[in-house]
Design a protein around this nucleic acid. Structure first.
Length: 281
DNA sequence: ACCCAGGGGCAAG
DNA sequence: CTTGCCCATGGG
């Protein structure tokens, strides 16, 4: 797509690890290219490459800095983490990982299609949706994520043909609700966390886990703590060892109280550490 | 509060 | 070639 032979902008990116950030299961559409990665930010194709504390990119530096949340106070965030062995190990693995600021619809739709799916398959679904229904951003790609209005006009079988399975009905229903203005993704931005979560949960295929992912990855709610099977395992093994009757409610309450004001960051570090260390075995 | 359908790729056996 | 496992939700 974007040969890094031409002019590359550069920007300072201290306390940042591009590779870890892109591998942490927040986004699924960036591909290794040359010495960096090629992807799309909203409607903008981008190539990004890291050299120590500097990023080289084809996109505008401001766009890159915002997307990768280079303004988040990482040292302060680390100081807010509870001091325990699990957090220490996660920090060791993931230092420099940042929460990406994703476009709300793209994030919402992607996580609706992610339920009970492995990362590889989520990436595959996203790719099919982009190439088939997204706007081409250059000659022969890349592609933007398809807009809600575009998906709203499809039939369920069209989406099933993109390997969505039972998720097709949910994505279609949600796309139509968004397109009809039944739920306003922009208005959610100004709601408090709990109200925003409740509003997201009105959408088809959106429960507490997906809603928390969207709050964390698209609405800058860095306290939101999505609990999936990986994180549930991490919590049980590290903080509830030997205890019986650890209900989902107990896990939720614990995660809200224990991890503090940057709980979402703590979650993402624990999540990625658990995944990367178990995959090696 | 549990129980289970649902869809399909991928890794392990 | 099978089987088990996946960043869940929603309805019973």
């Amino acid at each position: 797509m974007m040969p890094p032979g031409s002019l590359l902008h550069s920007l300072a990116a201290p306390e940042f690890d591009l590779a870890v950030t892109l591998a942490s299961g927040q986004v699924f559409h960036w591909l290794p290219q040359g010495s960096g990665y090629a992807g799309v930010i909203g409607q903008t194709p981008a190539y990004v490459e890291q050299r120590r504390d500097t990023l080289l990119t084809t996109a505008k530096p401001d766009l890159i800095a915002r997307y990768f949340s280079l303004d988040h106070p990482l040292p302060e965030i680390y100081r807010s983490f509870p001091e325990d062995p699990a957090m220490a190990a996660a920090l060791e693995t993931c230092r420099g990982m940042r929460i990406i600021r994703q476009p709300a619809w793209e994030c919402l739709a992607t996580f609706i299609t992610s339920s009970m799916k492995q990362v590889a398959h989520i990436a595959q679904i996203s790719h099919i949706l982009r190439t088939r229904y997204g706007q081409p951003l250059g000659r022969g790609g890349p592609f933007a994520y398809p807009m809600a209005a575009r998906l709203a006009g499809l039939r369920e079988e069209d989406l099933r043909a993109c390997a969505l399975g039972y998720r097709a009905a949910n994505l279609l229903k949600t796309a139509r609700m968004i397109d009809a203005g039944e739920v306003d993704l922009d208005a959610i931005r100004s709601l408090p966390d709990d109200a925003a979560r409740a509003e997201l949960c009105r959408l088809a295929g959106v429960g507490e886990k997906v809603a928390n992912c969207v709050l964390l990855f698209a609405y800058e709610r860095v306290r939101a703590f999505p609990i999936d099977v990986w994180i549930e395992r991490v919590l049980r093994e590290n903080y509830f060892q030997g205890k019986r009757k650890v209900t989902p409610l107990k896990l939720r309450d614990f995660s809200r109280n224990y991890f503090g004001e940057f709980g979402g960051y703590a979650q993402q570090y624990l999540f990625h550490h658990a995944r990367s260390s178990r995959r090696k075995k």
